[in-house]
């Protein structure tokens, strides 16, 4: 039994280990380890395409995480005690957002936005004063962030709602009885209690957006995110540089995850006390 478990762990970690090992390969060839070197990390970090893609990914992930955690938390709080059609509508949309494959969300968003922009652009042009350049709506960073925010916001709503439902409602009622304003109750009672969940939601949203390939592939327009860059490089073959980038990306997501886990756990133990 124990031997079996060890085998499964090897299966899970050997591929990751190989990538990390070969990212330190001094030689160019993928198959032979020629000695230790960090040259590929240097190459990757000095490659302007990689750095541009990294910047795009970080920016998109950061804005996505901010928007998703703010709007998701607002919705989760407001949804408390809401019943009827509004509740059904929200639950249905959250369920659909999680259920529908990312690829369908990606193409649906692409064709819907391209079509809507196709109507709006001539309209904007006709509204704009002559001589001035009317704005051109197109696929790019804003649409990427909008699509990622949609999905991650649904995740945040689920996470924060779970936290709220585990919370003692008596605390909020007590606060109201003691004449706190709704805003005061929120700031001094609710927010501190759900803060770990919000932060965990923020980090998960960031990780999702940063790692996502399939939705970005369709809606990023001319922007290249890091996963898109990696995907197109893989198609051209295996290189040590990609190994180095992959190792760094995995390391970074790992750090974020550990942080999210610690926060969720700290929140849980706090509320149990």
């Amino acid at each position: 039994m124990r031997l079996y478990a060890i085998c499964v762990y090897l299966f899970l970690y050997i591929p990751i280990g190989i990538i990390a090992l070969f990212s330190f390969n001094a030689g160019r060839h993928a198959s032979q380890f020629m000695g230790f070197s960090t040259q590929w990390y240097g190459k990757a970090l000095n490659n302007p395409f990689v750095m541009d893609a990294l910047e795009t990914s970080l920016l998109a992930a950061f804005i996505t995480a901010c928007l998703a955690s703010t709007l998701g938390t607002m919705a989760a709080i407001a949804l408390q005690g809401v019943k009827g059609w509004l509740r059904t509508l929200f639950d249905a949309m959250i369920y659909i957002a999680i259920m529908i494959p990312g690829i369908v969300i990606g193409i649906a968003t692409l064709i819907a936005l391209v079509t809507v922009f196709g109507w709006l652009n001539p309209l904007l042009a006709s509204l704009w004063p002559d001589g001035a350049n009317p704005p051109q709506l197109s696929m790019g960073m804003p649409t990427l962030v909008a699509a990622h925010t949609m999905f991650t916001m649904a995740l945040v709503i689920i996470i924060v709602r779970a936290r709220l439902s585990g919370m003692d409602r008596a605390l909020m009622e007590a606060s109201a009885d003691l004449f706190a304003t709704p805003w005061g109750t929120f700031r001094q009672v609710t927010l501190p209690l759900i803060a770990p969940a919000i932060l965990a939601g923020f980090l998960l949203s960031f990780t999702f957006s940063f790692d996502d390939f399939i939705i970005a592939f369709f809606v990023a327009g001319s922007e290249t995110t890091l996963p898109i860059y990696i995907f197109s490089s893989i198609r051209r073959g295996v290189t040590p540089e990609i190994n180095a980038i992959g190792t760094m990306v995995m390391g970074a997501s790992l750090l974020l995850l550990v942080a999210a886990q610690l926060l969720l756990r700290r929140g849980a133990s706090k509320s149990n006390n």
Binding site: Y13, I14, P15, I16, D211, M250
Partner: peptide, 16 residues
């Protein structure tokens, strides 16, 4: 592993 990029984890298997 599930929360690290599936793109890079699949790429590892090209290697293997």
């Amino acid at each position: 592993p599930f929360w690290t990029s599936i793109l890079i984890r699949s790429y590892a298997w090209i290697f293997i």
